[in-house]
Simulated assay, not measured.
Amino acid sequence: MKNSFNFTEDQRDYLQEICNIGMGQAGKSLSVLFEQYVTLSVPSIEIFAAKSLITTLKRLIPAEKISAVRQGFYTHVVDPNICGESITIFSNTDFEQLAQLIDLDDEVTYEVQEEMLLEISNIINGACLSGIAQQISERFFSTPPSMMGQSIIIESLLNKDHLIWDHALSIKIQFIVDKHSFHCDLLLLMPDSSVEYLQNVLNRLIDEL
């Protein structure tokens, strides 16, 4: 790994503050949807190597079974300054309780389960990325949400042999509603080139303080 990929203390602190704002917007959007208080974690930020992908995912998401939704995001269609994958990971989800949370009276079929996951993921991802983009004076575009799998093991989430980057920035944000056993994590993954650009943006913002 290039030494430049290691965040300075100032860069990490500023990035965490930026993520806090995005996370807060996403948490507020969920609270409105659920009409429940949503507990948020402190954003977890780290850089990991592609070869350690599975080990890293198992450490970040220690759940037996997960359901996951992915959305790509980017600043420009051609040669984007920042791009990456936003993955919303639901751990050991009780879909009957989830249906109660969003006040859904329909029978909770497999298709309805997917619709709930896609809707919630889209809300979280849109609000969080919008908050982050505003802080760094960028605009993010997103692909439509798509299912990666339902009730699968974390090892099957991504295939490290198909990755086109050597190292990636991981930003993990956790959302919990204890009363309804709701637990999901937003995992933002950005490749090497986006990390370098983001570091330059952070340096500029820090110099402006």
Rank of each mutant, 00 (worst) to 15 (best):
I153D: 08
N122V: 05
L57H: 01
A99H: 07
V112G: 03
C83Q: 06
Q150M: 14
N6V: 07
D10A: 07
L53H: 00
V69C: 05
T75G: 04
I47F: 01
P62K: 10
S181R: 07
T55W: 11
I206W: 05
I89L: 08
R59P: 03
K28D: 01
I66E: 00
I102N: 07
L129P: 00
A133E: 12
Y14E: 07
L198S: 01
L117P: 00
L163N: 02
D79F: 08
S142G: 14
S4H: 08
N125T: 13
L188Y: 02
N200L: 15
Q134F: 09
C83W: 12
N6M: 05
S52I: 00
A68H: 04
D185L: 08
M147F: 07
I120F: 11
H76C: 04
T88W: 00
N200T: 15
A63P: 03
L189E: 00
S52W: 02
R204W: 05
T39W: 09
T88P: 00
V201L: 15
Q71W: 06
T8H: 07
N3F: 08
G131C: 12
G24V: 12
S31K: 15
S193M: 12
V108K: 11
T143Q: 13
K28Y: 03
L104A: 07
I66T: 02
G126W: 10
K51G: 13
E64Y: 05
F48P: 02
N6Y: 10
F34K: 02
I152D: 10
I66P: 00
L209G: 07
S142H: 11
R59T: 05
I66Y: 01
M190D: 00
L186E: 07
R139C: 14
A68K: 01
V38H: 00
G22Y: 12
L98G: 00
P145C: 15
M148P: 04
I87H: 04
G149N: 04
Q113G: 03
S86T: 04
A50K: 05
M147R: 05
A68P: 00
H167F: 14
S31V: 13
L188K: 03
N200S: 15
G126F: 12
T55P: 03
T109F: 02
N122W: 14
L169Q: 06
F48Q: 01
F7D: 01
I120T: 06
K2P: 04
I171Q: 01
D178K: 10
I18P: 01
T8P: 01
S29K: 09
V32W: 08
Q150L: 11
I164T: 13
N125K: 05
C128P: 09
Y197F: 12
N122M: 12
Y197A: 10
T55A: 09
Q134E: 11
E46Q: 13
D178I: 10
N3P: 10
T39A: 11
Q199M: 13
V195R: 00
S170T: 11
S170R: 09
Q11T: 09
K28W: 02
L187T: 02
Q97F: 07
V108M: 08
I164C: 07
M190G: 01
N20Y: 04
L169D: 06
S31L: 14
S67T: 09
D94V: 13
